[in-house]
């Protein structure tokens, strides 16, 4: 996002200090120790939730080192309860909603970001400032006017309410603007000589070249939609449980089972595992693309 004074390196290979140039053994050990410790910190809560999900209620609250990460009598009871809830449907809804957010933002944020980065038109700076300033209002206060609007449009209790208000966002526009400002204009200049219009230029040259940044945008959009809780809770009535997203479904589930840690943890595991698998398969893509894209300037 922020521009580094240093011009970017020509090569795209990550800068690394070669191991020959003095990464001494002690430092290496310390580095490993820190990394392993932090990785453990990251995994322990998840491992613990898996272990808890396999326990009985009684065992869950009587913790000891011997049963901390593996129950003495593993049971799948908690999973049976969890599966009886409509998790599959909630998962599907969350995935669908996330896909629509991603598509909308990938297109609309990218277009807007490109306009702000490359085009001169009346009102540009003012509009951009306005867009940026919306990041500073906590979302909760605007929920009432949004709700009333969605009601006017007849969109309450539809997928529209879960997606339409979120098809563009300030952070994404900001991200894309920074990205477009960082890529060389030579590409466009070549197209301009051919007499291409802005629209053709965008579709044929800009968009394909913006893929890394769009991926980063997609990841942030995914996080946003996956975590959205209050809006789906308010915009979808309890009479439409088939439209619940995961967080709402979980909250609903928690109302009934809030004292049963194994059941709650089983639910958490069920909702996290597909995500974890997806993440592990595509992790290189996830991590590398968000690292090597729009985030730098």
């Amino acid at each position: 996002m922020a521009t580094i004074t240093q011009p970017r390196t020509q090569t795209d290979t990550p800068a690394q200090v070669s191991s020959g140039s003095g990464l001494d053994a002690t430092l290496r050990v310390v580095a490993y120790a820190v990394l392993v410790f932090v990785a453990l910190l990251m995994f322990v809560p998840f491992a613990f939730s898996v272990a808890t999900s396999l326990k009985t209620n009684q065992e869950a609250i009587r913790l000891s080192f011997s049963n901390m990460f593996w129950p003495s009598n593993p049971t799948f009871d908690a999973y049976r309860v969890a599966f009886e809830a409509n998790v599959a449907r909630w998962f599907f809804n969350s995935a669908l909603v996330a896909a629509i957010w991603i598509l909308g933002r990938a297109l609309f944020d990218t277009m807007a970001g490109y306009a702000f980065a490359r085009m001169q038109f009346p009102g540009r700076n003012l509009v951009f400032l306005l867009v940026i300033s919306t990041m500073m209002i906590p979302g909760i206060v605007t929920i009432i006017p949004k709700f009333i609007l969605l009601q006017e449009f007849g969109l309450l209790n539809t997928y529209g309410a879960l997606t339409l208000p979120f098809l563009a966002d300030a952070f994404g526009i900001f991200l894309m603007k920074q990205f477009f400002e960082s890529i060389p204009v030579e590409l466009e200049e070549a197209a301009r000589i051919d007499g291409a219009s802005r629209y053709r230029m965008f579709a044929q040259i800009i968009l394909p070249n913006a893929m890394p940044a769009v991926t980063a945008l997609a990841i942030f959009s995914f996080q946003g939609s996956w975590n959205a809780f209050l809006e789906p809770l308010i915009f979808i009535s309890g009479s439409s449980p088939n439209l619940f997203t995961l967080p709402v479904g979980l909250a609903n589930f928690r109302q009934a089972y809030y004292t049963e840690w194994p059941t709650l943890m089983a639910m958490s595991v069920i909702t996290t595992v597909p995500l974890a698998v997806f993440f592990l398969i595509f992790q290189r893509y996830f991590v590398e693309s968000s690292a090597s894209s729009g985030i730098k300037g």
């Binding site: 809770l233 009535s237 009479s239 449980p241 609903n252």
Partner: peptide, 8 residues
């Protein structure tokens, strides 16, 4: 039409 509210 019964419309239970899941939370809040």
């Amino acid at each position: 039409n019964y419309e239970p509210v899941p939370a809040e």
